[in-house]
Computed example of a mutant assay.
Amino acid sequence: MELELLKSKIDSLVDKNNSKEFTLQAICDLLENEIPYYDWVGFYFKNGDKEELKLAQFTGEETEHTIIPFGKGICGQVAVSNQNFVVQDVSEQDNYISCGWKVKSEIVIPIFVKGENIGQIDIDSHTANIFTENDTLLLEHVCKKVATIL
């Protein structure tokens, strides 16, 4: 993974002044295309005043998990904890919502606007034990850039 090159590409996408929806979709597509083990990339955001997340833009297979209650699954846990969550082997997680039998690992990074956790980026991989510190650094950068357009 060319970390600095990918950060630069993300910066360019965000700085183009396209619609929020277009930019989020472009980020999903870029990450899924550039990183071979990113098999599903999506954004979830807090659903109004409800204690749940709602799926926004994504790239990958369709998912039935378009609404996720706070506390449920990896995404729901991040909504409550406000912490990054890297799961190298989803079969070892008790509170995991399966998005498909192919998913082996998942990484979720929260997005903060004015100190409030308003959403997250969620990455699924069909490969176990695949995520590194570079993935965390890249996705934290993505979330900081995305926060500037929300």
Rank of each mutant, 00 (worst) to 15 (best):
M1S: 13
E2S: 10
E4P: 00
L6P: 01
K9C: 04
I10L: 10
I10W: 08
D11E: 15
S12P: 01
L13F: 11
D15W: 03
K16D: 14
N17I: 00
N18V: 08
K20A: 08
K20R: 15
T23E: 09
I27L: 10
C28R: 06
D29T: 14
D29H: 07
E32K: 15
N33A: 13
E34W: 03
E34N: 11
I35G: 02
V41D: 03
G42F: 11
F45V: 12
D49S: 14
D49N: 15
L53D: 03
K54Y: 02
L55R: 04
Q57N: 08
T63R: 03
E64H: 02
H65R: 02
I68W: 02
I68G: 01
G71Y: 09
G76Q: 07
N82E: 11
Q83T: 08
V87Y: 03
Q88H: 14
D89Y: 01
S91W: 00
S91A: 09
E92I: 01
D94K: 14
S98A: 13
C99Y: 06
C99G: 14
G100C: 09
W101D: 10
K104G: 01
V108L: 05
I109G: 06
I109P: 05
I111F: 05
G115N: 14
G115M: 04
G115I: 08
G115E: 11
E116T: 14
I123M: 09
A128P: 02
F131Q: 05
T132R: 12
L137P: 00
L137H: 06
L137D: 09
V142E: 03
K145G: 00
